[in-house]
Amino acid sequence: MGLLSNRIGRESLKAGDHIYSWRAAWVYAHHGIYVGDDKVIHFTRGRGQEVGTGTVVDIILVSSTPKRSNTPCPVCTDETSDSSTETNGVVSSCLSCFLAGGALYRFEYAVNPALFLAKARGGTCTLAPSDPDDTVARRARYLLSNGFRCYNLFKSNCEDFAIYCKTGLLVAEQGVVGQSGQAISIIGGPLAAVVSTPFRLVTTNIYGMAVMAVGVYCASRYAADIGNRRDVVKMEVEDLTAGLASGRICAVENIAQLVAPEAEGPADATATATLAA
């Protein structure tokens, strides 16, 4: 992995890779899982819409979204023709349609802390290790048929989907930001500005303030990375979709172990976290 860029050529792709492509003006990146045979499985709002918040922010996001061609792609199927796709938002596209004219990048896993912090913008790498490639591709194909939660730009987006496929990890606490490095970066910037403001009492030097703000921003990214967080659970894809169907998934004290509510044992199997769709 390069220090400045994760850009790769198509010839180096392998099934199970987490890939992404920056959209116009580098406003955001769209993420997916390459499963081989020129196919990418990725998560959208449904009907092929990559992003959306329901707020004025959409004006900026939609303006950076690639223009959809009126001519159906001869390689991949038209995702809008499948009613199940419109419901769960997980779609399969050919690599060219996924890239939409953009460059190809590969998301990196198990990077060392120094390299992680050197990547100033989130959404390119994580400290967390990846599961085997065949497991990753199997999860992605399973979710293509069964769906993946409800789309939310900050809590459950395309990057969250790809990270789950690669690691099997999901954020357990409700009301908190998901695994997405992009979302953490968006939140971390203003947070750094707010937290560093009190340091004006220590120094009024503009360069000193800038260094402090950058330090707070990097620290927030590092602490919130899925490789460091403690509010995550390891969940098999079959358990995820079954739990979402029932509307409830419980995690026992050992966050790496999951049990269905009716399968809980005595009081010592007290649930400590709940995932909601």
Rank of each mutant, 00 (worst) to 15 (best):
G189D: 03
G189E: 03
P190K: 07
P190Y: 04
P190A: 04
L191C: 10
A192K: 01
A193I: 02
A193T: 03
V194M: 08
V194E: 13
V195N: 00
V195A: 02
S196N: 05
S196I: 00
T197S: 11
T197R: 14
T197M: 15
T197W: 06
F199D: 06
R200Y: 07
R200T: 12
L201C: 13
L201H: 08
L201V: 13
V202L: 15
T203P: 03
T203S: 15
T203R: 07
T203D: 07
T203G: 05
T204L: 15
T204G: 10
N205V: 11
N205S: 14
I206W: 14
I206A: 15
I206E: 15
I206K: 13
I206M: 15
G208F: 03
G208C: 14
G208N: 00
G208S: 09
G208E: 06
M209K: 09
A210T: 11
A210F: 12
M212S: 08
M212P: 01
A213W: 01
A213F: 01
V214Y: 14
G215I: 10
G215S: 08
G215K: 06
G215Q: 00
G215R: 01
V216T: 08
Y217R: 01
Y217A: 04
C218V: 14
C218P: 00
A219G: 12
A219K: 09
R221K: 13
R221W: 02
Y222K: 11
Y222H: 05
A223W: 07
A224C: 14
A224N: 12
A224H: 09
D225Y: 00
D225S: 12
I226C: 12
I226F: 03
G227H: 07
G227N: 07
G227T: 02
G227Q: 00
N228P: 05
N228S: 13
R229T: 02
R229S: 01
R230L: 13
R230T: 04
R230A: 10
V232I: 12
V232W: 03
V233F: 02
V233L: 08
V233H: 02
V233N: 04
K234N: 10
M235H: 05
M235Q: 07
M235R: 07
M235A: 09
V237K: 09
V237H: 01
V237W: 03
E238P: 03
E238Q: 15
E238M: 06
D239Q: 03
D239E: 12
L240M: 10
L240A: 02
L240V: 05
T241S: 11
T241M: 01
G243R: 01
G243A: 06
A245M: 11
A245N: 06
S246Q: 13
S246P: 11
S246N: 14
S246I: 14
G247T: 07
G247K: 08
R248A: 10
R248W: 10
R248T: 11
I249P: 00
I249K: 02
C250F: 11
C250T: 11
C250E: 13
A251R: 15
A251P: 09
A251C: 14
V252D: 13
V252Q: 11
E253I: 15
E253A: 14
E253R: 15
N254A: 07
N254R: 08
I255V: 13
A256R: 14
A256P: 04
